[in-house]
Design a protein around this nucleic acid. Sequence first.
DNA 1: GTTATCGATGATTTCGATTACATCGGAGCG
DNA 2: CGCTCCGATGTAATCGAAATCATCGATAAC
Lengths: 335, 335
Amino acid sequence: MATIQDVARDAGVSTATVSRVFSAPELVLETTRNKVMEAVNRLGYEPNFAAKSLRTLRTEKILVTVPDISNPFFSQVIRGVEEAALAAGYSVLLGDTRHEETREEQYAAMFRRKEADGLIFLGHRLPDVLAEMVAAKGPRTPIVNGCEFRPGLAVSSAHIDNERAAAEAVEYLYTLGHTRVGAVTGPLASPISSDRLNGVLAAAQRHGRASALRIAIGDFSIESGVRQAGELLDEPGRPTAIFCFSDEMAMGALEAIRQRGLRCPEDVSLVGFDDIRFAQYLHPQLTTVRQPKEQIGHEVVRLLLDILADRTSTLQNVTLPHQLVVRSSTAPPSA
Amino acid sequence: MATIQDVARDAGVSTATVSRVFSAPELVLETTRNKVMEAVNRLGYEPNFAAKSLRTLRTEKILVTVPDISNPFFSQVIRGVEEAALAAGYSVLLGDTRHEETREEQYAAMFRRKEADGLIFLGHRLPDVLAEMVAAKGPRTPIVNGCEFRPGLAVSSAHIDNERAAAEAVEYLYTLGHTRVGAVTGPLASPISSDRLNGVLAAAQRHGRASALRIAIGDFSIESGVRQAGELLDEPGRPTAIFCFSDEMAMGALEAIRQRGLRCPEDVSLVGFDDIRFAQYLHPQLTTVRQPKEQIGHEVVRLLLDILADRTSTLQNVTLPHQLVVRSSTAPPSA
DNA sequence: GTTATCGATGATTTCGATTACATCGGAGCG
DNA sequence: CGCTCCGATGTAATCGAAATCATCGATAAC
């Protein structure tokens, strides 16, 4: 592959001029610019990325770590990230951490090695090396959290108001007339789950139904939905409505309901969370809390670009709007 | 961030020695090695990636382009890619092309700029610049195709036998007793669709049902499934079984069936393709052709690594096993 | 007419690591 | 005792582009 030297020689100019043709074309005379471009085309020259990166200390890459890429919720968020990043001239380095700390640390090291200009993490943990980095550099550290929000991490973030969203979902069930409500949470270590649980508890209390509330702890997967919703359904005083903290778990719950010969929504109402693309094609169509997935992706990139461009020096924790989407998996309890 | 010079000075050795501690530790005396490692820890040194990359001309990155990351089929394949890549010390640069040629070309340019050592593309198109590259360098070009297989591209690939898989799916419907079968394909520009269609046609002919076969062209999306399956169902002489070239379209078809007050499988049997994670949680559970998604990801990485390590000099087109998974969306036609 | 100014371009250093080659002291051998 | 060889380490060239500073001719200003 041709280098900038080859082009310079071929065009009869210096390497500085060739470089300028790319990075500051207005500084070079049109005639020389053309000479250079001819040479570029003739030799099929492409600037070597590593060399450029070494000199400028920039990679034009954003590392995005995600707990599970095969989860449609995350893949939609990533789509938004990818889109916004590309529009700003950045490309996306993908890290699927599979919820494993080891992998999170591998990617953290990659970031420390400066293989990316910024890091977006969609999980709830920040490896120690990065926490140190944040402690040292403060809010100028190019690390942003998406979907989750844990104040202690001291990084900017974009997410919905999980507590309120969950509260609204449960409120809706109570206003439909349900009294015995069950909830299937995600792992409580993540704020995304504990915040939602707080919302659920608060709503139950407001309606004086706290004692009839049943909680089961899942892990966001379909299978855990089948299992945990199943346990709720098998308890005496079966709930007439179940709220799952993810649409995937709601899919599992639907399966559990069917396995027991029950019907949704006639016997059990069901509410999910996320509004993944498939939610409206389930049968019955799933009532769920919509998260603005691509928008979260865009926002998180915007926050990161602000830091990278030094346009901001304070933390920003952006709350994006959610929406309860009522479909046909919810109904008043049958008499 | 500390550089190798800082470490060398701090440890009282030369930069060469520091470098060797990382890349060939057995060449340096244990006592010096310890001295160096102490300095490394003291200064928090991490080798600068761009510098290393410039010197070695390697990036340890694989660029993966995919038509749509939010598609669960692709995201599972990517998961396999990511896993195999990470195990081999490579990381994944993700490119979501959204089926757009412009984006495919952007990523092609990125590859030419040597931002990645290899390219895996999961679509069916290869941008011109890359085709030229393949023509020039032959089978040693580090470009591999996944999921699709187009002989003319002259790149190695990993995929299933789409023609046979589709034929088997349709055969199964015929042996159940169906005579009027409909198929919803993807865009015929991609081999993945045309191969499957060939399989469908061949099976129909073998069973003497070619004239009763109905074809509708979709685009793999749920919405196109609703639309195209709907059209098939509205024709006179409604098919009693529909084969969709993706599970997502099958989800759409299920919706179309319900919209018309029909039942699956009693009135219409349904077969999908891919066996995405959600297929078995639909109602009825979806009969479908399973593709070994993660395995395709692994295989495609293996092929690429073989090229990168110069272990191979011939094209390899690997056919992986598929499997018809019979669930409850298919049944004999009702009398 | 001399000098300050400016636009266009060139010469050269720099980024941070890798690596071929050089060096040096000690062991082994005749 | 002198020479070779080898293991351990140092010296310095190198990768390819960016950016600083220097240069040069021409124009403008006084």
